[in-house]
């Protein structure tokens, strides 16, 4: 492995560690800082309020980590299966389905976090289900799956807009979720989401070779013995289930699913297996860093996660592209 790559991988692991500690130390309640976080981690007893705050920060840090892993590995997988370097887990109508679900739940008066979570999940699964049915029925190509997904997205957004206007003064209930945040994650939801994300990661890993061979195009992959349709269908299904759970937990957080896979690919190359493993860390890092920034930029109140990932992620991706010029 090249020195430059070893350096990048080492710095990603180091930053992951630093950001993890930082994430436990930073928050609106400034009395709980680095010292308390270290005490907590080393198992010392402390005031109940303090340990509760650190536990809350730990949950949201883990939620951000899982969110980053899920979005990044899903984005990477779709970039391979749809053969589109700009694919992102929300391209197939997953987030618009979730947004419609939340909007409808709010409209019909189910406003607790848990109901919104369920509504988002059902909405996104239904929308991706429609896209997958279309693709299975027509045995369609990568580009027609994309067209189906994007069209459905617009259709659902249209319906959402109508209901948002009908919501009127109740609209903030949807907006807080729409902006994206890991601040509302509970241990129970984090637990369920993590299981889904790690299970889907496991299945993607098992399928790494067939997914990797899709980079050769349909005919060459088929001649190698890969069932292109089955590989594409299964991987999209796995990715959709995991992304739906994440959207339900944290809202439609953009950009991680596009930027983190590219960071991974620029560092370890275009082999799907290697970049799948690397994108776990780039995604986790990007999400934790963004969540910390979300707490800092509007201190003591919080900024929406989507805004942070876009504002800071975009220049970073451009920097990487320039830094590794010639590899893209």
């Amino acid at each position: 492995m090249k020195k430059r790559n070893v350096f990048f991988i080492a710095s990603i692991f180091a930053s992951l560690f630093v950001f993890f500690i930082a994430s436990l130390s930073i928050g609106a309640y400034s009395k709980v800082g680095l010292y308390e976080a270290i005490l907590y981690l080393s198992g010392h007893s402390m005031e109940r309020v303090y340990s509760d705050i650190i536990f809350y920060r730990l949950i949201r840090t883990m939620a951000a980590f899982v969110l980053g892993i899920g979005l990044s590995t899903s984005g990477l997988t779709l970039q391979y299966t749809l053969k589109n370097p700009l694919a992102d887990p929300f391209l197939l109508g997953i987030s618009s389905g979730a947004i419609l679900g939340v909007t409808l739940a709010d409209y019909f008066g189910f406003v607790s976090y848990y109901y919104l979570y369920l509504a988002a999940w059902i909405g996104s699964l239904l929308s991706i289900g429609i896209v997958l049915l279309i693709s299975a029925y027509f045995k369609s190509s990568a580009s027609s799956i994309l067209i189906a997904g994007i069209s459905l997205s617009y259709l659902l957004s249209g319906i959402t807009t109508i209901y948002m206007i009908k919501l009127g003064p109740k609209i903030p209930g949807v907006l807080f979720w729409l902006f994206g945040s890991v601040a509302y994650s509970t241990p129970g939801i984090l637990y369920k989401t993590s299981i889904i994300v790690f299970l889907s990661l496991f299945f993607l890993f098992i399928m790494w070779k067939p997914i990797n061979s899709l980079m050769l195009g349909e005919d060459m992959a088929t001649s190698l013995g890969v069932s292109v349709f089955r590989t594409r269908f299964l991987s999209i299904l796995i990715v959709s289930i995991s992304t739906s759970a994440l959207v339900a937990m944290a809202g439609p957080v953009g950009f991680i699913g596009l930027a983190a896979p590219w960071m991974a690919r620029l560092i370890v190359g275009s082999n799907y297996g290697k970049s799948l493993i690397m994108s776990i860390f780039t995604g986790g890092l990007l999400a934790i860093a963004s969540d910390i920034l979300a707490r800092v930029v509007l201190y003591p109140s919080e900024a929406p996660l989507t805004a942070i990932t876009s504002i800071f992620g975009a220049p970073f991706l451009i920097y990487l592209t320039l830094r590794f010029k010639g590899r893209i």
Binding site: E218, G269, N271
Partner: peptide, 13 residues
């Protein structure tokens, strides 16, 4: 007419 990922490294292809 191969439809190969143009961003992929030759080694990975």
């Amino acid at each position: 007419n191969y439809n190969i990922d143009m961003y992929a490294r030759s080694l990975d292809i």
